[in-house]
Amino acid sequence: MQLQLRSGVLFVTPAERAETKRDLIVEEASRLMYERGTGLGVDTLVSEIGVAKMTLYKHFPTKTDLIVACLEHLDDCHRARLSGQVDWSSSPAERLLSVFDSLREWFAMPSFRGCAFVNATVELADTSPPVRNAVREHKNAMRAWVVKLVEECELPNANFVASQIAQLMEGATTTALLERDPAVADVAQATALQVLDKAKASTGASAPLRR
């Protein structure tokens, strides 16, 4: 599958896009709501996507249904973006640290708008349990992926170390949005290396990890 980054979100290229109306609606609505927020009106969505309102409601009876579908799509795209930048032939520590290289590239996009899931939480989660659940599922899945990368480093307390790394990723994303500086990923990466070195030192190993 060929992937391209548009509006700070990873999407399949036109040649690879699914042909169904439902998939078209989800992909384009994901892009539009990432750019402008989940408060974007249905009339605007159908106009810019190029589908009839009846078609949209056929696939998504409520706007909440559409938002949840978009978040599920963005979850797939975000994980594909991060894992796609990993050099799986490198050492486990290098693989883990390379996640921050992917984040740096994302932060440098002119249309970067931060984490779509945090944005949705701020906009809707307090009043929309389905959205809150979709956000929680994404964060849990990302945490599980980071745990797996940490476990491959053969470090103790993998869950705790993974929580530290995940918080660095979250913090870097928010700071990059506020400061418009992709270099925050480098700071987070350097801190992640220190976290890994400290965890490795606790095993009694003398040689620190190196980037």
Rank of each mutant, 00 (worst) to 15 (best):
E151P: 05
A201C: 02
R143G: 05
V51Q: 10
I25W: 02
L97R: 08
V99T: 10
S91I: 05
L5I: 10
T13L: 09
L124S: 03
S91E: 14
R132C: 00
V51C: 11
E35C: 03
I165G: 03
S202H: 09
G37V: 11
A192S: 07
A93G: 00
L178N: 08
G114Q: 14
E105V: 15
Q2M: 12
R36N: 14
L66G: 02
A183Y: 09
T44A: 15
C70Y: 06
L103C: 09
H73Y: 14
S89R: 10
G37N: 07
A158C: 01
Q4G: 13
N119V: 13
E179C: 11
E154V: 01
S89H: 08
T64Y: 02
K200E: 06
A120K: 02
A120V: 03
A80V: 15
A207F: 06
A18M: 09
T64H: 02
A201K: 09
A162P: 00
V161M: 02
V99E: 09
L168S: 05
E94C: 04
A166M: 11
Q189N: 03
V26N: 06
D186Y: 07
T64N: 11
R136Y: 09
L74F: 00
V118Y: 04
N119T: 12
S111N: 08
G50A: 08
R81M: 08
I49G: 02
F112G: 03
P92Q: 07
H59W: 09
T174H: 08
L177F: 09
T13N: 04
T62N: 10
S102T: 13
F160Y: 13
I49Q: 06
R36Q: 15
Q189H: 05
R113H: 13
V146G: 03
V146P: 03
A205Y: 00
V184R: 00
T127E: 14
G171M: 07
F60P: 08
P208T: 07
V68S: 06
Q194N: 11
